[in-house]
């Protein structure tokens, strides 16, 4: 028997004492060997920064394997759990300290799986922040290659200071490509 989904509802404006926690955005200590920044801004349709958004990432280790380590909520500074959560600041900015995700199989493109929540957003959004590169992996990716060039670009992080920049546009000319998965 197939059960019907529980509907989503907005995260609302008051999640800041429920969801954020100490170390939520630091998958690895900032500045530790191999650490990179994944940062960006969440924008609304008028180009304004969304100050009450929450961004979550879930990613592979640099060798492409999936971590099955608990400890995301109480980080010990050693275990890499692959999960992080960052609430946005006044201008919509978020930032993670993490490792570069690796491809799950040789020849595949590596990405951060991303979810976005916000006041005024009635259901979570899924997207991907692909690791930039010149290799054939991005060109061969089934999702990226199915998109027109200007939309494809919204999914590829840019290189930035100490890591990557991935802006998220909820709406507008540069609206980010959002995803749905089978069964949704």
């Amino acid at each position: 028997m197939t059960l019907l989904a529980t509907p989503g509802q907005t995260v609302g404006p008051f999640f800041h004492y429920g969801l954020p926690y100490e170390g939520d955005r630091d998958l690895v200590p900032p500045g530790s060997p191999g650490s990179v920044a994944l940062r960006g801004q969440v924008f609304d349709g008028a180009g304004g920064g969304v100050q009450d958004a929450l961004v979550e990432i879930w990613q592979t280790r640099p060798d492409g394997t999936v971590a099955h380590s608990p400890g995301s909520l109480r980080r010990d500074g050693w275990a890499f759990t692959g999960f992080g959560r960052a609430s946005t600041g006044r201008d919509g900015q978020y930032a993670f300290s993490t490792l570069v995700p690796g491809p799950s199989e040789p020849g595949k493109a590596a990405f951060f799986a991303v979810t976005v929540f916000a006041r005024g957003l009635l259901h979570r959004l899924f997207t991907r922040a692909y690791v930039p590169g010149d290799g054939a992996e991005l060109a061969a990716d089934p999702l990226l290659s199915s998109l027109p060039a200007e939309r494809r670009q919204t999914l590829i992080a840019a290189r930035g200071e100490r890591g990557f920049v991935f802006d998220i546009h909820l709406q507008g000319a540069r609206e980010t490509v959002f995803l749905r998965f089978p069964g949704h």
């Binding site: 005024g120 957003l121 998109l147 609206e175 995803l179």
Partner: peptide
């Protein structure tokens, strides 16, 4: 929601 909803249909992957 007016400025915070995507206008494109999500891409199924």
């Amino acid at each position: 929601t007016v400025l915070r909803h995507p206008t494109h249909v999500p891409i199924e992957v």
